[in-house]
Design a protein around this nucleic acid. Structure first.
Length: 473
RNA sequence: GGGGCCAUAGGGUAGCCUGGUAUCCCACAGGACUGGGGGUCCUGUAACCGGCGUUCAAAUCGCCGUGGCCCCA
């Protein structure tokens, strides 16, 4: 009998859920809605992904950690921010059986935990810029349908950075620096995305403006996989974050914050995976090379050769395992493909006699390699696989974005992709567009080299502005 | 925000209408033969979401809770 296969990726929702389990990323059986368990294998992917994030942030940021609980008195200070989050906050109301005098919020995000302390840390222009980040869990009482890694009540892996600057312009530059970091992060994960400046009604509560990164999922809906916010002096005013400038005057500080959550891993899985399972980029694959010995005669001699090869590859810094289990080779092939291992090496008595190994790539190609040339070949193949993944993903994303002239056209396009339409930029026309098309305004393209010439879908005014529309996760 | 559907071993399921011994596949454990793309046979492990109610008797009927899925706004 054959093991049950993954549903086809064309049936994205089923495929995604099945793959999270079969690929041992997430166990969804924890008995609280919207809260999931990382399998050790999934957690290893997570660790590699977040190590990559750390390596990009550490040159210019300091990692830290703030408490999970936020006193109601601090949480309730920033009016606009509260409005954005109050319906989704979990509250701790008791210590043991005694009611607390001041309720404690489980952070839905950490501005209100961090900024009272920033007030103490920031005294002078010499303390600026201040740039910190933390990787923590946050809680949101989602009332909509939850989805593993995508819409959760416990976000387990929220990387949030918070910076403080002397001027609005410097903070704006920091927003761009953050976007550059995120662009590099996703380039290394081979995940293409769109930058969009979120419309005023969908920006971060309490920000001057918000830039988001959206990727396109296999079913054509978009997934927000990163955001950067210019907070202006909004929070600094509320929390009295001031500094003494060179002239001895007290000034309110300008701030930014920017974040990425485990949605980056949802994207990683969804963008690259195929009908055989996970496809992981070399940089973050917990197992980069699996050696499958073909054992039916001369077992010890075959294993001996495999162990020598593993040592040589490991010495070059590769993450290698030998699958010595007594399953049939075919069963092992399927299992490791499900786990997204980029390169498989098969070695049997026949190969040993010829001084070669069979190298199978996760994209399906097979080649025979001289044992002495394995290291260099693997390095070359790893780079080639990465390039292929990015090219395929980029082509997919581009195929999913189209210009539309009418609301009907845009409605059809957003059924399975992103529509670009003319938009005069007014909030009124923006809402009308959302209604008529039945999709959300992601915002105006940001950092786009393309220019736009057209007319507003609603009022018909000539405009050089456009809006990206999509159905969102 | 409004409406609908569902819950049986680790996963997927049959049984429920018409109340009485829980089916099959995969997985898992042990053994034998096997071995370059999901092997075969034998033996075994393992389940009715929780509470309350109706009943001689509840997986099955009713109510509440919890969890999951879908549709509409």
């Amino acid at each position: 009998m054959t093991e049950s296969k993954l549903p086809s990726k064309d049936n994205f929702s089923e495929w995604y859920h099945e793959l999270l389990k079969a690929g041992e990323i997430i166990d969804v059986r924890y008995p609280v809605k919207g809260m999931c368990v990382w399998y050790p294998f999934g957690f290893a992917v997570r660790r590699n992904v977040y190590d990559l994030m750390r390596s990009l942030l550490d040159p210019d940021h300091l990692e830290t950690q703030f408490p999970l609980l936020i006193p109601e008195t601090e949480f309730m200070k920033e009016a606009e921010h509260i409005k954005g989050f109050e319906d989704e906050v979990y509250w701790v109301t008791h210590g043991g059986t005694s009611p607390l005098d001041i309720k404690l919020a489980l952070r839905p995000t950490s501005e209100t935990a961090i900024y009272p302390i920033f007030k103490l840390w920031v005294r002078s222009h010499a303390d600026l810029p201040l740039k910190i980040y933390q990787i923590v869990n946050t809680f949101r009482y989602e009332t909509k349908h939850t989805r593993p890694l995508i819409r959760l009540r416990e976000i387990t892996s929220f990387k949030e950075a918070h910076t403080v600057h002397a001027s609005w312009e410097e903070a704006a530059e920091q927003v761009e620096a953050a976007l550059t970091i995120y662009a590099e992060f996703y380039r290394r994960l081979a995940i293409p995305f769109l930058f969009a400046r979120r419309p005023s009604w969908d920006k971060f509560p309490g920000s001057d403006y918000s830039i988001a990164l959206d990727t396109v999922m296999p079913d054509g809906r978009t997934l927000q996989i990163g955001t950067a916010h210019h907070l202006g002096t909004n929070f600094a005013t509320t929390y009295s974050i001031t500094f003494e400038d060179e002239g001895g005057e007290q000034q309110f500080a300008n701030q930014t914050c920017y974040g990425v959550s485990e949605r980056c891993i949802a994207a990683l899985i969804s963008v690259h995976g195929d009908d055989k399972g996970l496809v992981l980029p070399w940089a973050v694959a917990p197992v980069q090379v699996v050696i499958v010995p073909i054992l039916f005669k001369e077992k010890e001699a075959t294993l001996e050769v495999c162990r020598n090869i593993k040592e040589k590859l490991a010495a070059a810094g590769m993450r290698v395992v030998i699958d010595e289990g007594d399953e049939r080779p075919g069963a092992k092939f399927y299992r490791w493909e499900m786990k997204g291992v980029p390169i498989r090496i098969e070695i049997g008595p026949r190969d040993i006699k010829n001084g070669v190994a069979v190298l199978a790539r996760r994209d399906g190609k097979k080649l025979t390699v001289l044992l002495g040339e394995l290291n260099e070949t693997i390095e070359r193949v790893a780079a080639d696989l990465q390039e292929g993944m990015l090219a395929r993903a980029q082509a997919f994303l581009e195929s999913k974005v189209k210009d539309c002239e009418t609301a009907e056209e845009a409605r059809a396009q957003t059924g399975a992709g992103v529509a670009r339409v003319g938009w005069c930029g007014s909030e009124e026309c923006g809402h009308r567009i959302e209604e008529e098309v039945g999709a959300a305004v992601l915002g105006e393209p940001w950092r786009s080299e393309e220019t736009y010439q057209g007319s507003c879908l609603v009022c018909g005014a000539n405009t050089e502005k456009c809006a990206l529309l999509a159905r969102q996760y």
